[in-house]
Design a protein around this nucleic acid. Structure first.
Lengths: 115, 115
DNA sequence: GGGAAGTGTAACTGGTGAGTTACGCGTTTG
DNA sequence: CAAACGCGTAACTCACCAGTTACACTTCCC
């Protein structure tokens, strides 16, 4: 959790994750998107690797990186512990209520039709 | 976003947030829960203040701290950008579909009744 | 009113992080 | 086969962070 939060606390690393969301990319391709030096990006990628947020694979002389979202899910779960009064939770509750009512309506209609 | 993620990247600060989830606490009360020095905790509280994750209010000689969850919500929202294939998003989509169907059914029934 | 309680900050210290240039290893290409 | 490509890491530098002790200010209580 420390490592994951720490990893995304840096804007470059967040941007890298967003880039990888659309599919795997080579280290060079990623580095090319930033104004900082290649080794600097390499260092960031290493942080992400260590945190389990990306997985890399050597393909010839290229190293391809792909996203791993599980650790982000863990962080999101932790954050949900603070959602007690949030609008999001309220929306979820409202949707649940509607679904339950719809099911009851549909059940009642089915009973009338068979009677 | 940097500040928030950076703030929760520390276990002490995460623990402080969890403590405050149950209600406001004085600085001293918070500090008493950790083995580190009082000024160290004070420093952590300052980071949380700066990140907008807590709000403090002087009451006499005490300083009471309370949780602010909005920034955590922002982070959670950002994390949701990585939820494309998750079971959670799929459940949300299913609920939305049901709600839309229920609304259509109800609309259709209302049209029959007035006709 | 004086001393205690409560708490933030300064100054210090040692460790960590993020940028850079230089280097080196493995793969690909002409 | 030699040169180019791709990329990780070492070494360096400077800035930042988190712990500590010391200090100082405000409020409370006897």
């Amino acid at each position: 959790m420390n490592e994951v939060a720490g990893a995304i606390a840096d804007p470059v690393r967040r941007e890298i994750l967003l880039l990888l969301r659309d599919g795997r990319l080579s280290a060079g391709s990623i580095a090319g998107r930033f104004a900082i030096s290649r080794p600097a990006v390499s260092r960031h990628l290493r942080v992400l690797r260590t945190a389990g947020l990306v997985h890399s694979e050597v393909v010839g002389r290229q190293r391809l990186y792909e996203l791993r979202t599980e650790p982000l899910g863990d962080l999101a779960r932790w954050l949900r512990g603070f959602d007690r009064d949030s609008a999001w939770s309220a929306r979820m509750a409202a949707l649940d209520t509607e679904v339950r009512r719809a099911r009851r309506d549909r059940q009642a209609r089915r009973t009338e039709d068979t009677a």
